[in-house]
Amino acid sequence: MSKYSTELKLKIVERYLQTKCSKKSLAKIFNVSRSDVEKWIALYENQGAEGFASVYTNYTVEFKLSVLNFMIETGTSLIETAAIFNIPTPFTILRWKKILEK
């Protein structure tokens, strides 16, 4: 279960898109972290509202490697990469990267 509701995430993203209020200001207004606001905006821009559907996924090794390769080749950030591949948290990708480096 997600810490924040889909409705809240959409409300924040819609406010950002309609007003171009800063991510820092939105985080303060809604009492969430700035990184969460950034993540939700990137997710919405890449996946639309469907990106907020919470589904547990067991990722294959091939998928993990393709995500890491994509991030390296394109230079996208953890947040952008997570949004593109609809991975709920960028820290999942960071964990995969650390495991690969070992």
Rank of each mutant, 00 (worst) to 15 (best):
L78M: 13
S5T: 15
K102T: 00
I93D: 00
Y4M: 12
Y59C: 02
E62W: 07
T74S: 15
A82E: 07
L78T: 09
T81V: 08
T92G: 03
K64C: 04
E7Y: 04
T76Y: 13
E62A: 08
L8N: 03
V32Q: 10
L43H: 06
S35A: 09
F30I: 15
L65G: 03
G51R: 13
L8I: 07
F91A: 01
I79G: 00
Y56S: 08
W40T: 09
S35H: 05
S66E: 15
E50P: 01
E101T: 06
R95W: 12
L100G: 01
T89Y: 03
N58W: 11
E45C: 07
M1N: 10
V55R: 14
L100I: 04
L68S: 03
Y16P: 00
S33Q: 06
S33K: 11
S25M: 12
K102N: 05
T81Y: 07
N69D: 11
A42E: 11
L43D: 10
F85P: 01
F63C: 05
T60E: 12
V55Q: 09
A82I: 15
E45H: 11
K98Q: 06
M71F: 07
S66Y: 10
T76E: 11
I79D: 00
S5K: 07
V32E: 14
K20W: 14
T76D: 08
L68R: 01
A83N: 07
T6I: 14
K20E: 15
F85A: 01
K9E: 09
D36V: 13
I79A: 01
N58Q: 13
S54W: 14
M71T: 08
S33E: 12
E50I: 08
A27W: 12
Y59G: 04
T92W: 03
I12A: 01
R34F: 14
L94V: 07
N86V: 03
P90G: 06
F91N: 02
S5I: 11
S77L: 10
L78C: 06
I93R: 00
W96N: 00
F30M: 06
K97W: 06
V67Y: 05
V61M: 10
A83C: 03
V37A: 04
K98W: 01
T81R: 02
W96D: 00
I87R: 00
K102D: 01
E73L: 05
M71L: 09
Y4H: 15
I79N: 01
G75K: 08
V67A: 04
T74I: 08
I93C: 04
Y59F: 12
L17V: 08
N86R: 09
N31I: 12
I99E: 05
K98V: 03
I79C: 00
L26W: 10
